[in-house]
Structures are given as structure tokens and as C-alpha cells.
Design a protein around this nucleic acid. Structure first.
Lengths: 294, 294
DNA sequence: AAAGCAATGTTTCACGTGAAACATTGCTTT
DNA sequence: AAAGCAATGTTTCACGTGAAACATTGCTTT
């Protein structure tokens, strides 16, 4: 694993998607620990495919460098008496075009393997992959480099759970995976379908969604209801974090009012939700609420 | 205005961001109304900056074309006895590299002005612009080409309101606009700050957010509360769509319960929300709900 | 054999985005 | 002068995403 510590910060990550790996260098590194290297000693990266940039982008960058200098060192690895460019092709090219003779650089010792891994990650982060393609990329990365979900997550700048959840999509029946690629359903809907135990049920519900669309929240509720019906004792799944007393109180209230009641929020503020499932329901509940004198 | 009808479909739009304008051609156009043009008659686009693509992307495309043919015609405009390439540089290059002699194309009569506009729009859709840069792009587009918000919206594949709201951000004090660019606040928070009438108040609230962050929903509520305090009659803003009867009922219930009560949902399902603002509040309300025998 | 724990699996929900709902402005037509 | 309407302005909220919360599995250590 290469030891360019991938920054988890969300903002930086977002940029990373658009701009390549050069933003993945921690703030501190940018300030110190770099040396000035002669431009001629730098050779292009043999493993990574040569990238092409829009000309105006390069000239903007060159203008900025002329004015303020190179704000962020590039990354190189040593190769004999020379250095191989690892990250920062844009800056390198811009500096070269300005005819400068040196460029600030950080020297990292990276193996070919590390470089390959970086290239793959960069590829996955190309914006236009759908969730399935992304999952396949993740899988390859795990297999080729023996990464755990957690390591992978850090490398691609996402949470561990998101990575795991993305990978889970691959367990869906082919039909549904194609549905994701063709934008018939979104990945959250698809993930929710995994909650149904048989492929048959999954596909059945999938068809149903195609017929009349269901937003993610409603689908989640629907799937959860099906599971509870099939296996009533599964309700035991602990009520989220929440004060257990509150859970009991909710149950009690449900009995009294004959409808789902949830308390949402924290100690400082929040809301009590009384759910209704028909106009009559709503009427009944509202009337009852009015009857109350405080 | 160029008459390539920009497709409003969300899916297509998303792709558009990553892949350029070629996906903006309506489905129908892809099926008919095109001719086969000799490759040699096509000249590159003089106005648009020459784009560069990753080599492997091009060879993938070439492989696909070899197998299935060119699935989507490119777009050209006539220029003397030749044709100038407008949209589809990737396909054009891939076909050329395969040594084919013709390519399916749609011939559009586009003015230099139209082409310029397209280039600008394409530029704005580069993913990594922040909301302020995007707004500035929109403004330029409006000024240079005399577009209304509505026309602009259709050209860039967003809703009219979103375009208007993006442009509104430019009315914020400089301080806050920089805050957007530096990711100190997000654009929804910033937009909400516009609800405060003076720049002074806006900046004050902005500082406050920097100190202790506030999510968009809470900020909206806070700003709305401030406005109502300053100008109590402003509450008159009509209650959203909702059955006016229901509005009255909500007010009545608020009186009785001494806290905000909203009904959310439609005739078929939804929920009644009873809001609380302290633990005591919550206790009081829950006790009261329990006292109720149905 | 049970405690500990790292890895992975699964469900629920806070969040910002983008658009719908609602509102105002200021011409143009009658 | 008022009705009509296109353009623009403003607030509210449904939605999917991504991650937190919760759960299980299956080794390793004692």
C-alpha cells in the first residue's frame, strides 16, 4: 500500500474526483518536506496512461504559477539518478511551458504495485461510473491488492459502510444490476431490495417498482414490513440508540392510538410523529387531539 | 439560440456533465434525420478549443464502433463544401482511427454565436466549479446572449428556479460569497441567508454559523423566525398548497397544545408532527397523549 | 470454551440539493 | 385603470446519497 495518506475530508475528496490524486496530499506535506528538483531530471510516468488536459486549463495554471509560484509540490519517486513523475502532471507541464528550471517536489518511495493501485483508484473515481461499475472496480481493487473494505474506504475517500454497501450490490440478481446501470432504479432502492431474502422476491418487488415508482423511504418501509410479517420475532432488532424507556412509551402510545407513533429528535428539540394511513385515520386523530383540554 | 433541443431528463443531464454535449440530442434525432458524411469532408471545430481524451477511452470507443457501428450520429454544420464538427469529437476520432470512410451525422445550421454559447455552457458544466463560479457563468451567459432565466435553465438542463436561485447568490456580501468558494458554508445555507434583509444581519448570522454550524433546515427555521419577529404580519404568506381548512385546524391545535403542530402528507398517508423544544415539553406532551383514552 | 476483536453485513436516517410552491414586479393589452 | 401575463424573486420540502447505528461472523487469544 502506498503511504500517501488519503485525506478523508469531504471537501478535499469532492475535489479529488474532479482533479486527480494531487489533492490527496495532507495539508502539512504541502508546507514542508519538499525539495526543489530540476525539471530535466523528471521523467514522465511509465505506468500511468499519459493524460491530456484542455489547453486553456493549462495556460490558466501557468499564469497562476507565474504570478504566485508553484503553490503545491508535485510528487515524484526516484528512478536511478532521475525522478519519475507520480502526481502533478498539470503543474509539471505548466512549469515546463514557462521555461522554469526547477519545481518543488516531494520524493516518495513508491513501488510499481503502489502506482498501479493509484491508477486503478483514479480510474474508479472518474465521475461517470454507475454504482455497479464502481462496485466492480472496488472488487478488483480488493482482489488485486488484498485490501479490506476499511483500507479500500480510506484509499477512495469514502466511509467503510459505503464501500461495503456498494459491494453488496453485486449480490443482486443480474436483472436488477442492469436496472441500476440503465437508471431504472437508483442504488439505494437496489440496496434496499437486498433486504428481501430470495431473488424471486427481490425481482418481484423490482418489477413492482418499475410499474409504479416508490421512493427510497417508502420502499424501505415496505421491505421492512414484509420481513416483519414473514418473521415477527425479527422486530427485536434494537431500537436505534434511543432511550429504551422511550421505545416502550412509543409502544404504549401505539396501543392507545392504534397507529404508529415515533419520537424523533434529541433532548433539546424534536417532534412526535403520529402516522396516519387514510383520510379517516387523520380525521379521527385530529378530532381526538382537539378534544384534549390542557 | 441554437436549436439543439436540450433534453431535460435528469438521467441524461447527469451524463451530460461528464461527457459533453453529445448526449443532449433528443432520442428521436438519434434514430432518423441523419446522413452519412465522408470523413475527409469533416474539418475540426475552429471555435471550440481542441479537446484531449484519455487514449484508452478512445480505443474502447473504437472497439465498440468496430463491433456495433456508430450508434449515435455526430453533429456538424456546413462550411462551404465541407462540414465543421460541432459535437462528437470522440466518435469522429475513433472512426478516423479505424480508417472508416463515412460517419453518420446530423447537419445543423448553427451560427458562430450559437457555437460560442455552446462552448460557454460546456465550460460551466465542468464539474468542479463552485456555486459562485457557476452563478458567474450563468450571468455571463445571460448578458452575452440575452437569455432569460428560463431559456438558460433549458440550455443547461436545470429548472428555472434553480437557475434563479443560483444567480441570487451573487447578491450576497463578498465575505459570504468567499465563504461559499472556500466551503465554509454550502450554497443552500448561503441562499437562506438572503432571507435576512440587511447585509449586516446576513454577515452576523454567517459568523454565527462559522462558530457553531447549523444544518440547512435549522438555519431556514431560524431565519424565518427572525423575520416573523421583526415583522409579525409577514406570517400571512399562504400556507403551502395545503387545504386552508387544515391550516386553521393546525392553528387551533397549536393553541390547545401550546406548541407547533403540522400535518404532513396527502390524503392517503402522512403524519401529524407535534414539535417540542425541551425535555419538559416532550414529557408534558407525551403524558398528555397517554391520558387520552380512545 | 469464552472473551476479544477485526472484518463484514444490514437498516435507518440526517443531510444538502434541486425543484416545486408560492409571491412580486412591471410591462402590455384591453 | 385594470386585467393578463411573462419574468423574476423567495421559501419550503421531497428526494437519494452516504454514513452512522446497529448486527453478525469467524478467527485468535486466553
Amino acid at each position: 500500500m502506498f503511504n500517501i495518506d488519503l485525506n478523508n475530508d469531504k471537501v478535499v475528496h469532492k475535489k479529488a474526483l474532479g482533479r486527480g490524486l494531487d489533492v490527496l496530499i495532507p495539508e502539512k506535506e504541502k508546507r514542508r518536506g519538499f525539495v526543489n528538483i530540476e525539471i530535466e531530471k523528471i521523467i514522465p510516468n511509465a505506468l500511468q496512461p499519459r493524460k491530456n488536459f484542455a489547453p486553456d486549463e493549462l495556460s490558466n495554471l501557468a499564469a497562476s504559477i507565474k504570478e504566485k509560484g508553484v503553490l503545491q509540490p508535485i510528487i515524484v519517486r526516484s528512478k536511478g539518478s532521475k525522478y519519475e513523475l507520480v502526481v502533478g502532471e498539470r503543474r509539471y507541464r505548466a512549469v515546463k511551458s514557462l521555461g522554469l528550471s526547477v519545481i518543488p517536489a516531494i520524493i516518495k518511495e513508491l513501488s510499481d504495485r503502489d502506482m498501479l493501485e493509484m491508477a486503478l483508484i483514479e480510474n474508479i473515481q472518474r465521475e461517470d461510473l454507475d454504482a455497479i461499475e464502481k462496485a466492480e472496480g472496488f472488487l478488483k481493487l480488493m482482489n488485486d491488492f488484498g485490501l479490506t473494505h476499511d483500507e479500500l474506504a480510506r484509499h477512495v475517500g469514502q466511509s467503510r459502510t459505503s464501500v461495503t454497501n456498494t459491494l453488496r450490490l453485486l449480490k443482486l440478481p443480474h436483472r436488477i444490476k442492469k436496472g441500476i446501470s440503465y437508471k431504472k432504479i437508483n442504488m439505494s432502492q437496489a440496496r434496499t431490495l437486498l433486504g428481501l431474502k430470495s431473488e424471486h422476491e427481490q425481482i418481484q418487488m423490482y418489477e413492482r417498482i418499475l410499474e409504479n415508482p416508490l421512493n427510497v423511504r417508502d420502499l424501505e418501509e415496505m421491505v421492512s414490513d414484509i420481513q416483519i410479517t414473514l418473521d415477527p420475532k425479527s422486530v427485536t432488532r434494537k431500537k436505534r440508540k434511543k432511550d429504551p424507556q422511550l421505545g416502550l412509551l412509543e409502544d404504549e402510545l401505539r396501543e392507545i392510538w392504534g397507529t404508529k407513533i415515533v419520537v424523533r429528535g434529541n433532548n433539546k428539540k424534536g417532534r412526535i410523529e403520529i402516522h396516519y394511513y387514510s383520510l379517516d385515520d387523520l380525521d379521527r386523530i385530529l378530532k381526538q387531539l382537539k378534544r384534549l383540554s390542557p
